[in-house]
Design a binder for these strands. Structure first.
Lengths: 214, 214, 214, 214
DNA sequence: CATGAATGAGAGTTCATTCAT
DNA sequence: TATGAATGAACTCTCATTCAT
């Protein structure tokens, strides 16, 4: 989290950069404080413009949020889809690859905080919830499911239930995203994300039980 | 969320019932709307009393929230600890038992929504975050870890890293809790929690890869 | 200030003592916190009864206040009037006597704080103001003026303007009453009331200028 | 108290005039109603703006009050200090001069009501009390004491006790200030301030007793 | 395009007063 | 008489949104 609150002098005040600066500032603050608790005045200040200016680019708070999502989350899903389409090896490696990639491109980035935000505040902002459901959740789920189908078809995974296993695999990654953002000031949760992913993949692939004799 | 309380006549006093009614109403609304967005007037109305009455029983919003947690979440952890202490069989069965129990007693109940709430709003309400961290998270984590230690000591699980595996096991359960609460009105996510838990346990215990030997 | 807030057990809960206990508690709190800021619940608690009971004896806050004044201030004026009526010596001695007596009986007592209270809050509570004006101020002023008239008539004071000198003499005594009650927590004003009265009488009787030759 | 400001059209902006208008309105209402009983909404309305606008200029009620004091009382003390520093004649004349000046610049103005306010409400608002004690009372007292020291040193006053005489001289002036503000609606106290000051000075300088010699 | 002063509904909290018991 | 649970209006302070400049 960088900004609160130095009005950036920005030597070259390029008009066309405005929306991007506003989106970046909004992402920062939405992730840090949540949707309802983020004040547009702070977003503006953080982007070095006035409150009124923000309304020239985004009709209201909800539209600003949607723009942030479109800008920072949606592209990542497309990228993952590309990886899957072009992959050729064992599905276990594909799974590892997609998971680590996800983390690098999304989980580790600020945008990961949006997951937490949506889970918590969707109820109060139906518009936003619908938008996110369609643009992110549904699409991300399809992408994951297609990977599992491939694995089962090729006999590389046991013949598991695709739908539910998709959810089982996604769940910890989402938790990882939310854990990355401190839960309050007395956060004891010093978690190593990479270790978490590896431990999870290890467990998911091999199970907790000892090798059955053999 | 429908307020399950009929508006009671003004002078029908039930001092001893009040706190419970208020706690129930507060739980409903906190889970539905989050901490910041829940208006105390609504809580009061929902419990069939006036705004002022609420302050006869709880000094302020934060104390009301803490009381809700103490009333609905904390006892569940104690119960789980008891199960573990008294269990005698194979750790895989203990894990299954604790997970299903958790779901029945906490996950399936409204109180599960508090997890979501905390994740989202902890940053904005440090006092609450600390309270929850100490009373719920730390204690719940210890409980889970003790179960894994037992499993490894008895040679019933592979010698995994306790700390991180605890988190890996907890993560999907927390996600399950948050998923239970619809992400907005257009929630497509019709998830069967029991099936989810079973699928997760199956994966966690046996892994995704096919039996190696055979 | 004694009470805030031990519910007095009062072995013998005499009903007939109730009003007196309430008046005493009310005086304490009115003086300490002012009229508007004194909560009737505190008055009741301080007298060891419930909030509702207070309303059995006094119809509302204003009536309670009037009762306090009638109980603690009004009698003192009558006493001063008696002193004047029965005095026989030099008027300078009478003035000294009345002033010291006033201080002993009223200024030094808690009731002195009511002066401060009235000055400050009269504007917001016209009923109270009128009551106090009639019962206390007007009567007290007449009493003082009669003393000055006697002094001038007997040639013991210079032929000063009675009305205005009355005010000039009363003013410092009233200030002394208000100063007795600390002006906030950082009150540096460690004032010796007796010394103040003596200094004032000395100045009033002899003046600040040196003895004119002689 | 009539609000001297006509309601201005919403979009007639006068940023630079606002603070002064708000301070004037606040002074009026604080003096009329006291600190606790003054509603900020009324202050705003009286200055022709909305409630929210007030918060653009003053962070909260206490800061508004401090600003009022800084604006209306503090400068007057500085002026009195200048008079003393530059005065050359007899101390009796200096005393007369300072007193009359005080009355003209402070006593006669609305700001004189702040004295009353502080005396009454300091106990309930410690922050304000400390501020006033430091910025006004302590400084004003020092100013008066320096004047008396000068008088005694030059042999123009009897060798009186500086500290206590300072208080004796200040007391009636403070009372005069509070009397200026009617004690409720049925105020019988039609007092001529100039006559009061002159009578007080006459008494203070010459005493009440007749010339001894002659 | 850009500004930022202004708005006003709405939140948490307090307390004099009521009234069934 | 005595209680104390309940009320609801009132207060301070916040912030998304508007709009004259």
């Amino acid at each position: 989290m960088q900004c609160p609150f130095d009005t950036k002098p920005r030597w070259e005040r390029r008009k066309d950069a405005r929306p991007q600066e506003l989106l970046a500032a909004a992402l920062d603050l939405f992730v840090e404080r949540g949707f309802a608790s983020t004040r547009l005045e702070d977003v503006a200040k953080c982007a070095g413009v006035s409150k009124g200016t923000l309304y020239l680019y985004f009709t209201n708070k909800e539209e600003l949020f949607k723009a942030v999502v479109r800008d920072s989350v949606v592209p990542v899903i497309g990228h993952a889809e590309d990886i899957i389409a072009g992959f050729d090896g064992h599905s276990a490696d594909l799974l590892r690859s997609v998971m680590h990639n996800w983390w690098q491109r999304l989980g580790a980035a600020k945008a990961s905080g949006l997951t937490k935000l949506i889970m918590a505040e969707a109820g109060n902002f139906p518009d936003i919830a619908c938008f996110y459901q369609e643009e992110v959740i549904a699409r991300g789920t399809r992408m994951f499911a297609s990977m599992l189908e491939r694995a089962v078809v090729r006999g590389e995974f046991r013949p598991i239930d695709i739908t539910i296993t998709t959810q089982v695999l996604i769940a910890p990654m989402l938790m990882l995203q939310t854990w990355k953002h401190p839960v309050g000031p007395c956060d004891l949760n010093s978690l190593d994300p990479i270790a978490f992913i590896d431990a999870f993949l290890d467990m998911a692939l091999h199970g907790l039980l000892p090798e059955p004799a053999a």
